[in-house]
Structure formats: C-alpha cells, structure tokens
Write a protein that binds this DNA or RNA. Structure first.
Length: 257
DNA sequence: ATGCCTGGGTCCCCCAGA
C-alpha cells in the first residue's frame, strides 16, 4: 500500500543525512520535497539514487525548489511550473506520473508581510495553482497534490489563533483560496483522518516552539476522488522533527490502496 | 513592539522563511 509523503526539507544539502535516514527507515514510495534551496546542478542526485530512488527536480539557487522522488522507478515529468505568469521565476511546482498515479510537489508562497507584494503574489499564485488543479482533476485519475501550502486552514489547525492572527498563513483570503481549491472536489487527507484538528506539521525553530508543541498544520495532501477512493490512512512522522539538525517541517503522508 | 532560530548567499551581514 503505497505511502506518499510531503516533506519541506528546508535546504536539501543541510538535510541530506536526515532525508536518507528517513528514506531508509520508512521506505516511502513517493516523496514530494519542497524548499530544496539548491540549484539544479547541485541537487544530490547520486545520494538519492543510491538510496533506491529515482528523482526529478526543479531547483533554484538560494531558496524555493521542489522535487519528486519515487522508490525503485523514475518519475515521469508532466509539468514544471505553472502557467499564467511568464515573469514568475520561482521554482514552486513540479508534477509527475509514477506508475499511474499523478503527484504534484507544491511550495506555495509564504506571503508575509500582510499586506504587501508578497501577499499579493501568494494569492495570485494560488489562483494559478487552482487552474492547474482543475485541469488535472478533469482527467479523472488518481491524483495527490502534496506540498507546503503555507495555509492554516482552520482555527483548530494552530496552537494559538491569537499568536498567528496577523500572519499571512491565517488570513481570510488565504483560507478562502484554500477552501476554494478543496471545493473543486479534493479531499484533505489529514483533515479526513483527524477531523477534530490539533495535528501539526510545522514547529518554528524559534522561542522553543517544538518543546512547547506550538505548531500548526500547513503541509497538505489533497486527493482527487479517484485517489480518495483508495484512502487508507494519513499522518505526520512527527519524530523526525525532534531529531538533530531537523527541518522545521515534519514529513506528512497519506497511504493509498 | 520586537526578536527569538536556521539555511543560504556573499560572506561576518542580509534575505527568506513562517
């Protein structure tokens, strides 16, 4: 039963030992990575291949960057970047097919501070993503849209509504954009598995957030109806957030029949 | 009201993250 993971690594070079350890221990079938912070030519292809994974990646020097890994096979690229803005230079979207399953690795803009051009970019990018999602959904195939959406969908997805109230991740416009996307016909797999909320995928490095369990849920795996029919389980591999030199995100996953 | 960490780039300070 394939395990599909979304993992914002916050720098693949700094996180490589952690990532390889994760692949060896958990043997996920597909891994969508975000925030590679690596140009295409410095992506650690050999180390990932030696761990048993084929990979495609869409890198960028310094920040952003997404990849799709597949255990024992090579992902077949379908789409790199989103249509709708020829001036957009950010590497935030990579879509592939892996043995009949369509997966996208998504790194939505953070959008802080609010208001401002970065928040405008976030909302505009969200609209472009929704257009792509609608197109893919119409294919009526099993699809997983996996990534760091930088949206806290509900008040019970955050340790403190008050602490995050002015953040781009929780603005009504951000939530409305996420809701509109899901309403196309996608299933939020973590929400389905844990309808009462209280499940985090991110803990800030600052102010002892991990030690206080002050986190929130921003990494999401959305399922097309054909994927949702195969839903088995979903969760967060929280222990990996507590390890040495961890990312501030934990691997978040869904298992399908 | 602000900074708290962390990674990466040019490099010992700044940007970006969330």
């Amino acid at each position: 039963m394939p395990k599909i993971v979304s993992y914002n690594v916050n720098g693949i070079k700094a996180r490589l030992p952690r990532l390889i350890e994760y692949l060896d221990a958990e043997q996920p079938d597909i891994v969508c990575l975000q925030e590679l912070k690596s140009s295409d030519d410095t992506f650690p292809e050999k180390e990932i291949r030696d761990a048993g994974y084929g990979a495609i990646w869409h890198g960028q020097k310094g920040f952003n960057g997404v990849a799709v890994l597949a255990r024992g096979t090579n992902p077949v690229e379908r789409q790199r970047g989103l249509d709708g803005d020829p001036d957009d230079t950010h590497s935030r979207y990579l879509e592939a097919e892996v043995e009949g399953l369509i997966v996208a690795s998504i790194y939505l803009p953070n959008g802080n501070p609010v208001p401002g051009p970065k928040f405008d970019y976030k909302l505009a990018w969200f609209e472009r993503l929704a257009e792509r999602a609608e197109h893919v959904l119409a294919e009526e195939k099993p699809v997983v849209l996996a990534g760091d959406y930088n949206v806290i969908p509900n008040d019970d997805d955050v340790f403190s509504v008050k602490a995050m109230a002015s953040d781009a991740l929780m603005q009504p416009q951000s939530r409305a954009a996420y809701r509109a996307l899901v309403s196309q016909g996608w299933t939020d797999s973590l929400r389905t598995r844990f309808p009462a909320g209280g499940v985090w995928t991110f803990w800030d490095y600052q102010a002892g957030a991990w030690q206080r369990d002050a986190g929130f849920r921003i990494d999401h795996l959305l399922l097309s109806p054909q994927a949702a029919d195969r839903f088995v389980d979903a969760g967060v591999d929280k222990a990996y957030r507590g390890k040495e030199k961890a990312s501030d995100h934990a691997p978040t996953w869904v298992r399908l029949k």
